[in-house]
Every structure is written in C-alpha cells, then in structure tokens.
C-alpha cells in the first residue's frame, strides 16, 4: 500500500485521536475505500486502539471497508426522491448489473450505492455518477447511463 499518500494524510495529525474521522475521510477519498493496512496504520499513528478505529470505520456511512467499483453510482433514496420513484431506479441499476446495493460487480466496473438524501430534493429523483449529478432521472435514462459507462453496449444482465 502506497505509504507516501498515507504519510501526507497523517502529516500534522499524529497522536491526535480527535482527528480520526477527518483522517479516515481523507483515506477514503484517496483510495476509494479503507484498506486494512491503512486502518492499522491510522490506529498506530493517531494512538487510537484498533478496535475503536474499526468501530468508527464500520459505523459511518462515508466509509467503505470493501473496494468499490470504477464507477460509483449513487441513487438518492431521500423522501422526496422516494415519492418520485427512486425505488425504480434502484431496481433498474441492481437488475441491470446483477449486484446488490453496496456490492461491486464482478468485473470491478460498478458499485451501486444509495444515500439517504443529497439535498437536491427539488430535482428528484437524483442520481450521482462518480460525483456528477443527474436530476429528474428515470429508469430508461439510468439504463442508458450505465450502458454508456460500461462501454460494452447493451445488456449486461444475464
């Protein structure tokens, strides 16, 4: 695991237990998830017992303990998006890719996630794809989006 990136994240924060969440946020941003050795290294550097670091890492939604796909598709399932059919989008994405929310596709191309509100309720249902936001989504639009990201044309599902 590339130690240099981790070193720069930990720079100036060593032995400061209260920085734990901020540090983990940066690790997550940098690596896309929290690798095991990074968690161990953070525990040593901040002086926080491993059990506590692991507890924090598994408690907050922002952190993922498993690697995520190249494309992360996040479907907002907040109330406003829910009443406008966010469930259809989740069905579409999981059905098309054959994975459960939170899981990565076998080829490592996609992870489908859902978030409880992105705060763009007026434009719902909202989907973000690798950080960029798509509003007023419909299953058909999402299907095209996934297909185009996949670059392999139609029909990924078995």
């Amino acid at each position: 695991m590339p130690g240099r990136e981790l070193d720069s994240i930990l720079e100036g924060r060593r032995s400061q237990p209260h920085q734990l969440i901020e540090v983990l946020q940066d690790v997550q941003e940098n690596f896309g998830y929290l690798p095991e050795d990074a968690i161990r290294a953070v525990s040593r550097a901040l002086g926080v017992p491993l059990t506590e670091v692991y507890g924090v890492a598994s408690f907050y939604k922002a952190f993922s303990l498993k690697p995520r796909g190249k494309n992360v598709i996040t479907i907002c399932t907040g109330t406003a998006c829910h009443v406008r059919g966010a469930r259809l989008l989740l069905n579409q994405a999981t059905g098309q890719l054959g994975v459960a929310p939170g899981e990565m596709t076998e080829d490592g191309m996609f992870t489908i996630e859902h978030v409880n509100c992105l705060g763009a309720c007026a434009l719902g249902p909202v989907v973000t794809e690798n950080g960029s936001c798509h509003h007023h989504m419909a299953p058909g639009k999402l299907r095209k989006l996934i297909t185009s990201l996949n670059g392999k044309g139609e029909a990924t599902h078995a």
Partner: peptide
C-alpha cells in the same frame, strides 16, 4: 485490552474484533 468492540450500526451492530 480493547480486544473486542461494537462494530457497525443499527441492525448490523455486533460485537466483534477488528476485521
């Protein structure tokens, strides 16, 4: 010792060791 702790949250909360 802090060998075990709470892991996860809500319905997924459990007592476990790291990893």
């Amino acid at each position: 010792a802090k060998a075990i702790g709470f892991v996860g949250r809500g319905k997924d909360r459990k007592v476990d060791t790291p990893f």
